[in-house]
Design a protein around this nucleic acid. Sequence first.
DNA 1: ATGGGGGCCTGCCGGC
DNA 2: TGCCGGCAGGCCCCCA
Length: 283
Amino acid sequence: MPELPEVETVRTGLAPVMEGQVITRTLVNRPDLRWPFPDNMAARLSGARIERLRRRSKYILADLDRGETLLIHLGMSGRMLVSGDPLGRFVHDHPAPEKHDHVVFDMENGARVTFNDPRRFGAMDLMATATADMHKLLAVLGPEPLGNGFSESHLTGALRGRSMPIKSALLDQKIVAGLGNIYVCEALFRGGIHPARRASRIAEKRIAALVPIIRDVLGEAITAGGSSLRDFRQADGELGYFQHSFDVYGREGAPCKTPGCSETVRRIVQSGRSSFYCRRCQR
DNA sequence: ATGGGGGCCTGCCGGC
DNA sequence: TGCCGGCAGGCCCCCA
């Protein structure tokens, strides 16, 4: 589901109701998601104050006042739903629990944050805040695409001599963190690069041009509140609307959006995942 | 060392 | 109405 813009949208929505708040109660309804939960997770969270909600790539990180950090990954279908009344102006009942509500956080301000994830590709873990960067899942990540570490020299250097398709390279979180299937397809369309083209066979100028393109695509998607496909909701339950701006993703058979181009969007499968592109505009 | 594919899960949709 | 195949935003891990 969620790529960087969706995760950032969720983080932005959760921050006002979770930052600075004590988790008064944590309910854990099963032993694991993709991996077992850390030992005593409910007890280690309950009573802790969330000092800050951060994002690294597609991970949400909650720094606690106990020197630990909670890591949350939404996988493909994970959602964080907020209910209750954080401002305390009204009395709100919480909605009835739903299938796949795996973890529930009750906050001191009355808000309830429910992690719901039908496919359970998501994850949670706890680690020492001081060494969070060294966590197995975070240590391997490449630079943040919206940060200074993601530069033209970084990308051209990382792709130099790589024989893999550019699509696979941009999905590789070690090369750049946070991109997923949607935004790679969109960036390659804007960059005029065929998704199956081998990275080593793309002129460095064209690789370099992808850097501002990737930043633009992600930035526009964040501004739009992410892309709502099957089950993505912002933390407040609202739908993002960037999906209306897709040039190619999910548009197989529809006309290419390049002015004057008469081609239709094609779909191919690369390492098991759909790539959408225009065969005339992308080479 | 690199890169490709399997597998993890559930839900939904279209076709028959 | 029901069943089946295909598909879905991610990513670890194994194998060649």
